[in-house]
Simulated scan of single mutants.
Amino acid sequence: MINAPLDLDAVRAFVRIAELGSFTRAARATQVSQSAISLKLKRLEERLGCRLVDRTPRHVDLTQQGTEFLQHARILLEAHDRALAMVIEPRQRLTIGISDHVAGPELPAVIARINAEAPQLVIEIQIGSSDALLQQFDRRELDVAIVRFDADRDDGTILCRERIGWFAAPGWSHREGLPLPLATMPDPCGMRKLACETLDAAGLAWREVFVGGGVAAVSAAVMARLGIAALSPRMLPPEAVDVGAGLGLPALPHLPIALHSRATTADSRSAIDALSSAFRSAVRG
């Protein structure tokens, strides 16, 4: 039974010799002399009690024991390097929640911008409703939440204000005398609440014709001509039409997008700055 630990430098030297097929090249790769790497191999062989390498004038061959040991040596070194990296240079994780009504088609570009600014961070992004994301943020399950502004809170920073309209598919028309067909997301969606309360306040009859589990589903229902929806124009295909004025519907307010953050490190703050700039650019665009 082997009790004494292996010398990892000697194991690494053996792996380099095996991979490069030469003591000279292995010595150059590890920046030591050829005699030093030969000595490391000799000590490893003595420690294991077997010959790992057959030396010939032209090249180096592994013995059967050397071939069998090589796989285990690589696994040992990989485990050592992973463990060391976790202690010396752990990768920070930044967990971001983005409202489904905010994320939009620009999300791939937003992610790329964050990664370009802070490539060393592990970025985790969750998409959900503003209400649910704020609850997660309060439970410290999220480092950052980008959501529709909540008037009951005073801890967020307004990034920008986004136009909201009543959108329909090209050529869609409303049958006069019938309630307005509305595509929405389920409660407690804030956009649904805004749309319904705005129509009720104006005394306009409406009926729910579609409930989608996300903005993409609501947008698809609109483009399928099921009805209209209150959405940001960037959440819909370019050909979608704002029918609010034509139908005499009440104007919807520009809604703020709020950032909630508890970032503490310089890398996290840089990533959040990039994230904020990306959303400002998306809304302006």
Rank of each mutant, 00 (worst) to 15 (best):
Q92E: 15
L159Y: 01
I158G: 07
R93G: 06
R234W: 02
S277G: 15
A132E: 05
A109N: 10
P250Y: 04
L133N: 03
I228E: 02
T30D: 10
T198W: 07
G214T: 10
V211F: 06
R47A: 14
F137A: 09
F210M: 15
G104D: 12
Q135I: 12
R12Q: 14
C196L: 11
G128Q: 09
V11T: 12
L70E: 09
A29M: 01
S173N: 06
P57H: 02
F210Q: 15
P253A: 12
V209P: 11
M1I: 15
R113A: 15
V60M: 06
D273R: 04
D187V: 00
A220L: 05
G190R: 11
I127W: 13
G128P: 03
I123Q: 11
A251Y: 01
S268V: 05
E45C: 02
S173W: 01
R82I: 12
A109K: 09
L39D: 01
S232H: 12
A13I: 09
F149H: 13
D242T: 04
A118L: 05
F149Q: 12
G66M: 03
A195Y: 08
S129H: 09
V122Y: 01
S281K: 15
E46G: 05
H174T: 12
R234C: 04
A83R: 06
R82T: 08
L8P: 14
D267R: 12
Q65M: 04
V87I: 14
R262I: 14
S270E: 10
A18I: 06
A220H: 05
G244M: 09
E106D: 10
C160S: 03
I228F: 00
D150R: 14
I164Q: 15
W166F: 06
I37N: 03
R51H: 05
A229G: 08
S270P: 02
R47Y: 03
R225W: 00
P170D: 08
S270D: 10
A274F: 08
E176A: 14
E19P: 01
A85Q: 15
E141M: 09
F69H: 07
D54R: 15
P119W: 06
L6H: 04
A4E: 13
R192G: 09
M191I: 10
L76C: 09
H59I: 07
S268N: 07
I146N: 14
T157A: 10
M185A: 10
A230V: 02
L41Q: 04
L249M: 07
V53F: 02
G156T: 08
D9K: 08
E208C: 11
R163W: 07
L107K: 05
W206M: 01
L134W: 04
P188L: 03
D9V: 04
L180A: 11
T184L: 10
R161F: 07
P256F: 10
D143T: 08
R82M: 14
R47H: 15
E239A: 13
S268P: 00
L255R: 10
R43F: 02
E239C: 08
A73G: 03
G212K: 06
K42A: 05
G248E: 13
